[in-house]
Each structure stands twice: as structure tokens, then as C-alpha cells.
């Protein structure tokens, strides 16, 4: 579903991504871990071209994203993204946050979008917050709504950029629960996170990105119990 070939990104003379080649299949749940500054967030942000790669190519659904002719806006409609800092629209109600894009892009009428928003709010356990403004809600609630906002576009893949890193500890669980349910429903997911428990439980494959390359990848049991790369061994000994 997503294919990256020799993906490279440099900021000035700093090499962040040094050639990443990955196949992400439909239905896969890929969890990306690594030390801070390793390039894992940059890799994720390249997947929907929020960050423009300086080399290599990305193919999503048969469309070459790195081709300058590609209509990225149209492609991004099918790729949901959830950010570390939620990035909800503060001057819009929760329902407006969810319905804005589908209505503006003429995917749904306002009525259809409202119905969809209510259904999504029920699914994330916040059916009574439709008329609230983001500023009135806790971080965990905001992040769940950010997930609902992305889901309203019926994406084929969901990208999560450290979705629980900005949350108070007691709110991490509620967001992870939503993500687990999403995984069970068969959504293709790429998740950058520090939540090793989530990686073990949900991932179909775990990537360890270090210094701009995928230093190790495996299914979670082997990955966590028999790491081969010395830097991964070192990293895991610190975080587990």
C-alpha cells in the first residue's frame, strides 16, 4: 500500500533520513521506535509529504507522491494523520472540526457529515462533546477527537506522530484504547511512539530507526526479546 524506496531527507547539511526502503502492506500495523532525533517522525511526515523528501521515492496506492505532477491534496484525503499536539481548530466546535474537511472537499453534505461526526464521537466515547470547543477539553479528549477528525475522511491508512507524547500519564490509556480498536477493525496504521506496550500488543511489525536508517525490523516478539542490533539492545535496556 505504501512503498518507499531509498527515502532521503536533509535539512541543510544535516542528514536526517539516509535511505529508507520499506513496504507497508494493507492492514499492517507498523510501529516505529527510536531515540529522539533519529528521524522517525521525519520518516512518518514524509509518508504524506508534509515533509518533502530530498531523495528517493514514495508510492502510495500506485501513485508516485514524489512526482511533482501528483495532486498531493487529493492523495492526502486518503491518508489520515494524528499529531503529537492534536492541532484541533480552536475556533470551531468539535463537530465542526470533524465535518470541516469532508464538507469542504464535497465528500459529504453537511447533514451526512454531521451524522458521521455523531457516530464517530459515539465510537470514541465522547457523544456529548459535539458542541464543545477544543479548549474546554482535556488533552486525551482532544487527541481522541483528532483521531475522529482524521477518520471522517475515510482514510485508507492512518499515520500517528507520537500521539500520546504530549499527554498526562492518566490520559495515555484512553487514546491507546481507541488506537487498538482501530487496529482491530483492520485499519492500516503507521505509528511513531514511545509506548512499548502498545508496540508489543498491536504491531504486526516494529521498526527501529536510528541515525536515519532502519537499523532493525521484526515482528514484536522477536524484536523485543531477541534484539540483534547493539544500539537497539542499548535503547531497549533504557526504555523497558
Amino acid at each position: 500500500m505504501i512503498y518507499t524506496h531509498d527515502l532521503r531527507k536533509t535539512f541543510g547539511d544535516h542528514n536526517v533520513l539516509c535511505g529508507i526502503t520499506q513496504h507497508i502492506e494493507k492492514g499492517e500495523k507498523v510501529v516505529v521506535i527510536g531515540p529522539s532525533g533519529s528521524g522517525k517522525s521525519t520518516f512518518l511526515r514524509c509518508l504524506n509529504m508534509l515533509e518533502e523528501p530530498t531523495g528517493g521515492e514514495i508510492i502510495f496506492d500506485g501513485i508516485k507522491l514524489t512526482d511533482p505532477q501528483t495532486n498531493l491534496d487529493e492523495v492526502r484525503q486518503r491518508m489520515g494523520m494524528v499529531f503529537q499536539h492534536f492541532n484541533l481548530f480552536p475556533m470551531k466546535t468539535v463537530r465542526q472540526n470533524i465535518t470541516l474537511a469532508p464538507v469542504l472537499l464535497k465528500k459529504m453534505s453537511q447533514e451526512e457529515a454531521d451524522a458521521k461526526a455523531d457516530e464517530l464521537l459515539k465510537r470514541i466515547g465522547l457523544p456529548d462533546k459535539a458542541q464543545s470547543y477544543p479548549g474546554m477539553l482535556s488533552g486525551g479528549q482532544q487527541q481522541r477527537i483528532a483521531i475522529a477528525r482524521a477518520l471522517a475522511m475515510d482514510p485508507k491508512v492512518m499515520l500517528f506522530d507520537e500521539p500520546t507524547s504530549a499527554l498526562d500519564p492518566e490520559m495515555v490509556g484512553e487514546v491507546l484504547t481507541i488506537m487498538k480498536e482501530l487496529a482491530q477493525d483492520g485499519m492500516t496504521m503507521v505509528v511513531v511512539t514511545h509506548e512499548m506496550g502498545f508496540a508489543r500488543e498491536v504491531a504486526s511489525r516494529v521498526l527501529f530507526i536510528d541515525e536515519g536508517i532502519v537499523a532493525e525490523e521484526n515482528e514484536p516478539y522477536e524484536f523485543f526479546n531477541h534484539p540483534r542490533n547493539p544500539r537497539l539492545q542499548d535503547f531497549l535496556s533504557k526504555v523497558l
Partner: peptide, 27 residues
């Protein structure tokens, strides 16, 4: 206005102009 607002709009598939008009400029 924080860059995250533009990124959120673009990640949903809105164009630069749409995001400017409906999200950035009103704020």
C-alpha cells in the same frame, strides 16, 4: 498562528488556499 494548524488542514487534504481561508485567516 502555530504551523500545526496549517499542517492539520493540509493533512486532511485541504489545499493551501482552503486552509488559509477557513482555518488560518479567521484565527
Amino acid at each position: 498562528i502555530p504551523v500545526g494548524q496549517m499542517e492539520a488542514g493540509r493533512s486532511l487534504g485541504l489545499t493551501y488556499a482552503m486552509t488559509m481561508r477557513t482555518i488560518i485567516l479567521p484565527q
